[in-house]
Design a protein around this nucleic acid. Structure first.
Lengths: 198, 198
DNA sequence: CCAGATATGTAGTGTTCACTACAGATGTGG
DNA sequence: CCACATCTGTAGTGAACACTACATATCTGG
C-alpha cells in the first residue's frame, strides 16, 4: 500500500500565515477565504490537514505558544522576582509593537467574546494565557522561598497581576499604543512587584 | 400632516438588552436575530430606530459610558491619587464580576479584533476607553501639582497604567476570574501608584 | 507498471448573515 | 373623518459564510 501523494505545502509555514490572519482579525473575523489565500492553499487542503476552522486555530495557537515558550523560559530564568517582571513586561512591550507581527497578542486578539457555536474559543485562549500565569506563579513561589519576595507576599496574586498587565498592554497595543507608551506602563507596573520584594 | 404612529418600545430599555448581547457575544458574534429577540422587537423597528448594527452598537456604547460616567466622576473625586486608583480598580473588580451583567467590560468584550467591514468597531471601543484614561490623567496631573504625586512621576503614564490594569482585569473576569482574584490584582496594582506618591 | 492511498483544484452545497419591500396598523393635523 | 406620516410584523432578498463532492494528479509498495 502506497503512502499517497505528499502535500505540496509546509504546514508550519502555512500556520505562520494563518496565525497572522487570526491575530489581525480574530477567530470570527477571519474567513476561510482569507486564511486559504494567506496560506497559499485551497480549502480542501486546509480541511484535510487541520480538520476545520477551529482545528486550524488550535494548531496556530500551539505554534504560537511553542515559539513563545522559549522566551518565557528566559523570562523566568531572571535572578529575582523583580527582574522576572521587568523582563516579562518590557519584553512584551517590544513584542506587542514588533512591526513583524500584528500589534497586540494573539492570545487576546484571537477572540475575547465569540458568538454561538464558537463559545469555546475564548476558553481555549484563556487556558493558554493561564499557562503563562502558572509559570510565573511557580517562579514567584520560588522567589518567596528564597527570601526574594516578602514573607507576606502572595505569589499567585503577583502572577495574576503581571498577567493582567500583559493582557492590558496587548489590548492597548492593538488599538495603536506605541512602544514607548507600553514601556512606560511596564515601568510603572514593575514597581508593584518591587514593593513586594524583600 | 400627522406625526405618525408612535413606537411601542422604550429605546433605552431596548438598548439595555442590546448592550447585554454585545457584552456577552461581542459585536461580530451578536446576530440581529439575537438582538431583536432580546430587545423584544422586529428587525424593521431596530433599523428604523438605530440605522444599522453598528449604529445600534454606538447607541449601546453611548448608554454604557453615560451610566459609567457618573461612577468615574466619583472615582476621580477621591482625595489622593492612591485612593483614586484604589476606588477605580476595586470598583472595577466588583463591577466586572457583578452577576447582574455579563462578566468583564463591554468596552473590551465588544470587540478587540474584527473582520473586514467592521474595522472601525475596535477603534470605536478604544476611543471610549481613552476617555476614561484622559479623565484619570487629568486627575493625576492635579495630584502632581498638589504634591500628592512625586515631582518625578508621569501622570500620563500612571493613567495609562491604571487603564491597562483595568482592561486586563476585564479580560480575566470574562474568562472566569472571580471577584476575590480581581481584588487581589487590584491590591497589588495600587502599590505601584503608592510608590509614586510623595 | 500497476494498485492503493493521499493531496489538489474546481466548483459547488446548504446555512446563516445583515438588511429590506411591502402591506397593514396606529397615531396627528386639518 | 380624511390625508398623511410613522411604526410594526411577515416574509423575504442577495451576499457571504464554513465546509465538501468529485475528478484528477502524484506519490509508495509490490
Amino acid at each position: 500500500m502506497g503512502m499517497g501523494r505528499p502535500r505540496e505545502f509546509d504546514a508550519d509555514v502555512a500556520l505562520d500565515q494563518a496565525m497572522e490572519v487570526f491575530w489581525r482579525h480574530g477567530y470570527e473575523g477571519a474567513t476561510i477565504a482569507q486564511l486559504t489565500e494567506a496560506m497559499g492553499i485551497n480549502p480542501p487542503s486546509l480541511y484535510a490537514c487541520f480538520g476545520n476552522k477551529e482545528g486550524l486555530l488550535k494548531a496556530a495557537l500551539d505554534r504560537y505558544t511553542k515559539l513563545r515558550g522559549a522566551w518565557m523560559d528566559e523570562v523566568v530564568a531572571a535572578p529575582t522576582a523583580r527582574e522576572v517582571a521587568e523582563r516579562m513586561l518590557m519584553g512584551i512591550a517590544d513584542k506587542q509593537t514588533d512591526p513583524a507581527n500584528p500589534p497586540g497578542c494573539l492570545l487576546v486578539q484571537g477572540g475575547i467574546a465569540c458568538g454561538t457555536g464558537s463559545e469555546n474559543v475564548p476558553f481555549e485562549l484563556a487556558a493558554r494565557r493561564a499557562q503563562n500565569e502558572d509559570q510565573l506563579r511557580d517562579r514567584f513561589i520560588r522567589a518567596k522561598a528564597e527570601g526574594d519576595l516578602k514573607p507576606t507576599s502572595d505569589p499567585a496574586a503577583l502572577a495574576r497581576y503581571v498577567s493582567a498587565v500583559s493582557v492590558g498592554m496587548g489590548v492597548m497595543a492593538s488599538s495603536g499604543a506605541d512602544r514607548e507608551a507600553l514601556r512606560q506602563v511596564a515601568d510603572v507596573a514593575v514597581q508593584a512587584v518591587e514593593a513586594q520584594s524583600g
